[in-house]
Simulated assay, not measured.
Amino acid sequence: MPGKGSTPRIWHQSVNELDHLEVYKRALEAHAAEILGDDAEVVVHGLPSGSYAGASATAVLGNAFAYHRILSRVIDNAIMAERQGYDAFVIGSFSEPFLREIRSAVDIPVASLTESGLLVGCSLGSYVALISNAPAVQWMTKVAVDKHKLAARVLEVAAMDPPLDEPQLARAYADPAPVIANFRAAAERLVARGADVIIPAEGVLAELLVRHGVHRIAGAPVMDVFAVTWAYALMQIRLWSKAQLGVGRSWHHRRDDAAIVARFWQGDAQ
């Protein structure tokens, strides 16, 4: 936890190769500074160049083997973040790679886009709807919703039509109108069916919408899910420090031996 008078640091872990999505990385950094100001510092990290062997995350991560092989390093990055003195770790992916494993490994707050967005969304309306960029991400997001046992509060997890991968979305930052129209059509359909809150369920898409002022569609709030997740992480930092909160260690995030993580961690984070 941060020392008295120090600024909390939050490690934001994207699952994209950000050296190929520089416009997205810059947008995230500026957005975090605008939302949190002097309250916390968000440091944005991506995966190493070549992680997806020239393909996009959307094209690869729907395969369970590739998902495990590529994203297991996120666990190591969380351990490294804790060892480097970060005060919280944010999983910047709606598939929430290894959320349970990470919380079992570290003693700093861990926030994810999906969980934070769903929990805050439940305080804004009875039914939340999520819109992803493509069917593969739609499916991974639905699995995450089911994992949190919040399906009863989710009207639908939808995908944009036509689908768009991360490089296509990044290029659209310069000409966002077609993407916004695509997203708006899906959102209007979901609101007409009863959705109270709309969550853009893909990071590059979510940041594009914030960047271009899409905050409400057909009367429903379009959640700034990054702002929500960073603020949620900061809330946890404060509650862990001031109210002595922390994850339960008896069952879901069990750790009987305090040294067990150090014993098995290989220290190969990237």
Rank of each mutant, 00 (worst) to 15 (best):
V106M: 07
A185T: 08
V179P: 14
V90N: 00
R255L: 10
D196R: 07
V222L: 07
M160P: 12
R211I: 07
A57R: 15
F89M: 02
A32R: 04
W11S: 10
K4C: 02
D161F: 03
P2G: 10
H20Q: 09
A27F: 04
L124S: 02
H31Y: 08
G62F: 07
A55W: 10
A27S: 13
A129T: 14
A151Y: 07
I237Q: 13
I131V: 15
N133S: 15
V157Y: 10
F94R: 09
G121R: 04
D196I: 00
D196Q: 05
L190W: 03
P221F: 05
Y24D: 00
W139R: 15
G203R: 02
K147P: 15
V74A: 09
L124M: 10
L155I: 01
D38P: 08
A105P: 05
W139Y: 12
P97D: 14
I35D: 06
I217Q: 04
D39L: 12
A159W: 11
Q244I: 04
Q236Y: 12
R211Q: 13
D87P: 06
N77D: 14
P2V: 12
D38W: 01
A174D: 09
L245D: 08
A258W: 02
Y173M: 10
G92M: 05
I180C: 08
D107S: 14
